[in-house]
Amino acid sequence: MAASIPKIGWEQVSPAPVVLVFGKESFLADRAMQRLRALLLMEDPELEIHDVDAGQYVDGALELIASPSLFDEPRLVRVENGVKATDALIADVLRYLASPVDGTTLVIRHDGSTVRGKKMLDAIRKTPGAIEVVCQPLKRDELVPFVRGELRLLEREATPGAIAALVDAFHSDIAELANAVRQVALDTQGEVTEQVVRTYYSGRVETTAFAVVDAVIAGDVATALVTLRHAIATGADPVPIVAAFAMRFRQLAKVSGAGGGDSQAARQLGMQDWQVRNARKDLRGYTDATLCEAIEAIAHADHAVKGAERDPHYAVERLVRQLAARS
Rank of each mutant, 00 (worst) to 15 (best):
V52D: 02
R37P: 00
L94K: 15
L28E: 00
Y57T: 06
L106M: 09
Y57G: 02
R35H: 02
R75P: 00
G55M: 07
K84N: 13
V77G: 00
A38D: 10
M33C: 10
D92L: 06
R95T: 08
L40E: 02
M42F: 04
D59T: 10
R31K: 09
L97Y: 09
E48P: 07
N81L: 15
P74S: 12
L36G: 01
R35V: 02
R95M: 04
R95V: 08
A85V: 11
E80M: 10
D92W: 02
E25M: 07
P68D: 12
H50Y: 12
N81T: 10
T104W: 01
L89Q: 06
L62D: 04
S26D: 14
V93D: 04
D53H: 11
L94D: 08
D30A: 10
E73L: 09
A98W: 06
Y96K: 05
I49S: 08
L36P: 01
A29E: 01
E63R: 11
A61N: 06
D51Y: 08
G23Q: 04
L36F: 03
E80A: 13
R75F: 05
D51F: 10
N81E: 14
Y57W: 08
V93C: 09
V83C: 13
L28S: 00
V77L: 08
E63H: 12
V58Q: 14
R37F: 04
A32Y: 02
Q56D: 15
F71P: 10
L106C: 12
G55E: 08
V101H: 09
L97H: 10
L36E: 00
R35C: 00
T86C: 07
E43F: 11
L89F: 12
P74L: 11
A85N: 05
D51M: 05
E46F: 12
P45M: 05
G55L: 03
E80Y: 13
L89V: 05
R35N: 03
V93N: 06
S69T: 15
P100A: 14
I49W: 01
A91N: 10
S67I: 11
V58K: 14
F71R: 14
D44E: 13
I108P: 01
L64E: 15
D59C: 07
L70T: 15
D51R: 13
V52I: 15
S69N: 15
Y96M: 10
Y96F: 12
S26I: 04
D53F: 07
F71N: 14
I90T: 08
L70F: 15
L28Y: 03
V83W: 10
M42Y: 04
D59R: 13
L76W: 01
A66R: 06
A32H: 02
I49T: 12
P45F: 03
Q34I: 03
L41C: 05
R78Y: 07
R31F: 01
E73V: 12
G55A: 09
E25P: 04
L36D: 00
L36Y: 01
K24F: 02
K24Q: 15
